[in-house]
């Protein structure tokens, strides 16, 4: 079992120290592991610490954020203590990141062919013509129409959906083992979102990728993930296999979220048992107990013993 794990977090803690006085702990004691070829969905509201986790895994936290505790194991290497040089050789080639707002994540002054080519040449040391071929291949793989001419397009000439495909191409071009998708579809409208998700699903299956799928949309996660973790104020409040999570949600926050996403009165009734009872004290001081309890196989819930 253990040999199949692609990436695991052990008690990861990320702090943003304040300039004076107390700072913010954005991620608190987060642990999970992702098996090879599986997709873990991480769902949470803005400020729950989703992006901090993604950035911590790539060690690209925004100043003054820092990892103050825990380990991040990729295969058997700890990313937290790895040297910059080793880290650079992993990023983009073994571990890659799909980011939201693709248009601001691409360099506005360089063609997309050049930007993709830079990543390939950095990691794979290919010749000029091999690089170009690799770029054209990956552009075709992410279903960019007319990829020969898009090769020399600039980011501002692309639509949001196309730019997102380019970012996906960028993350796939070196055949990584592990992909982090950080809210990858948030800036797109629903029809484009669906196309992108279908594309990602296809690629994940074909390449047997392990994926950390971060999103705000629990509905999207439901269709896409094998496991689901719910993040609240920097902590995991519930972690379960996808079917188990929707069949038997336990934590009040899970219930609240599910009822908020339920589009019919019937489903709202199923999920919101008695919101009045817990919501006030729970949301007032965010008093989350320290213990994650395994209620069923692989189903962890944060609650009092």
């Amino acid at each position: 079992m253990n040999t199949e794990i692609s990436l695991s977090l052990n008690n990861l803690t990320v702090d943003y120290p304040g300039y004076k006085g107390s700072g913010t702990t954005a991620v608190k004691d987060v642990s999970f592991s992702i098996s090879k070829g599986k997709v873990l969905g991480l769902v949470g509201e803005s400020g729950a610490g989703k992006t901090s986790i993604a950035r911590a895994i790539t060690r690209q936290l925004v100043e003054p954020g820092e990892i103050t505790g825990g380990e991040i194991f990729f295969e058997d290497k700890d990313i937290v203590t790895m040297s910059q040089k080793d880290l650079k050789s992993y990023l983009g080639s073994q571990i890659s990141l799909i980011v939201p707002n693709p248009k601001s994540e691409l360099d506005p002054l360089l063609t997309i062919g050049r930007q993709l080519g830079d990543v390939v040449r950095t990691h794979l040391k290919l010749s000029k013509s091999e690089t170009k071929q690799a770029v054209l291949d990956v552009l075709e793989a992410v279903q960019i129409p007319d990829h020969n001419s898009r090769f020399s397009a600039y980011p501002h000439e692309l639509s949001g959906g196309m730019a997102q495909r380019v970012i996906i191409a960028m993350s796939l071009i070196c055949n990584p083992k592990f992909v982090i998708s950080d809210d990858a579809t948030s800036g797109l409208d629903v029809t484009v979102q669906r196309e992108i998700m279908k594309l990602m699903q296809k690629i994940i299956k074909e390449k047997n990728l392990s994926v950390l799928f971060i999103t705000r949309d629990i509905g999207l996660a439901a269709h896409f993930c094998d496991h689901l973790g719910l993040l609240f104020r920097g902590q995991i409040v519930e972690l379960a296999p996808i079917n188990e999570f929707f069949k038997n949600p336990i934590h009040p926050y899970s219930l609240a979220l599910l009822s908020a996403f339920s589009h019919s009165a019937k489903w709202r009734k199923v999920y919101s048992t008695d919101p009045e009872k817990w919501s006030k004290e729970f949301f007032k001081d965010g008093n989350v107990p320290n213990s994650l309890i395994e209620v069923d196989e692989g189903h962890l819930v944060r609650m009092e013993k």
Partner: peptide, 22 residues
């Protein structure tokens, strides 16, 4: 150096020289 696309280029593992040049 703090901008989105440079941070993204970093997370693609590009070398420091490339980053500075961009």
């Amino acid at each position: 150096l703090e901008s989105d696309h440079i941070r993204y280029a970093r997370s693609c593992g590009l070398g420091e020289f490339q980053i500075v040049r961009r």
